[in-house]
Amino acid sequence: MTRVETGAPPAAAPASAAALLRERARWSLFDLLFWAAALAAFFVFPLRLPLLTEIAILGLFALSIDLLLGYAGIVSLGHAAFFGAGAYAAGILAQHGWGEPISGLAAAGLVAAALGFATSFLVLRGSDLTRLMVTLGVAMMVLEAANKAAWLTGGADGLNGVVMDPVFGVFEFDLFGHTAYWYALAVLFLCFLAIRRIVNAPFGLVLRGIQGNALRMSAVGAPVNRHLVAVYTLAAGFAGIAGGLLAQTTQFVSLDVLNFQRSAEGLLVLIIGGSGVLYGGLVGAVAFKLMQEWLSNITTQYWQFWLGAALVLLVLFARGGLLGLARRFLRRRPARSERGGAA
């Protein structure tokens, strides 16, 4: 929390804030490698596309939490509320005959953002602990509401009969998940670009300032509360898009898009990858899903144990997540690639 990212090496310290932002926004080799790997995955693992799609969705969800936690410093145990709201929005639209995926996704994002805006005023007050409890409470209320509104959401049975039109009217969602993967990856990439733009804008800099010291930021004239409301709404919107993606690619929505485990999982993914770094959520999602897949092959039922153990060890020994570890490792060697994972 206290560690502030110093993206550029001290030797080439940028002269102004604008230069700093430009420096951070530059594309590095790591960016290219990462997205090239994502494209290559389609051809290398043609049979594991559903898993890859899940990774993309989870990555987007973790990215939205990163915006909230890693940049603005808002802790939340209830981000699943927005993921679920998006999933239900997209699912219900498609169920009622509006199967066009892209507008459905936009609607999912908007519904979740609206919910985020409405509840953002609740997280402005209080300490971290109060925020944790309030976000948890809000998420529980949304879950309970979805459970009770069975006429709309299908309740505990889930939302069936979600039928999607082809993307752009051309690419049909097929059984093997080809379209689903390209679609999810494209959406993830676009959202990533948007979030990258947001955090590398002055807005993102102010958010980091608020995370560091909110009082001081308001003293230099930054409207703290307005920024927090804005980032909460944005993060909710991106989580909603992730939820919408899940609903559209699996063509099914059940109550567990809203439950506590979902929020905890998103947070966990981010911690595994490293918060406060753009790639934290994405790398975390890859590591998490692969670990889950591998562990559940060994012990079908008890992989949760190892998940918990990983979490405990990460908090104790590797607070920066995988990317933090990687950066520390790279620093120790002669400073050749110090821009390693910094986004």
Partner: peptide, 13 residues
């Protein structure tokens, strides 16, 4: 919170 959630997961499993 994260640490103790990890403990909870371990205990449950």
């Amino acid at each position: 919170v994260l640490f103790t959630i990890g403990l909870v997961f371990m205990a449950i499993a």
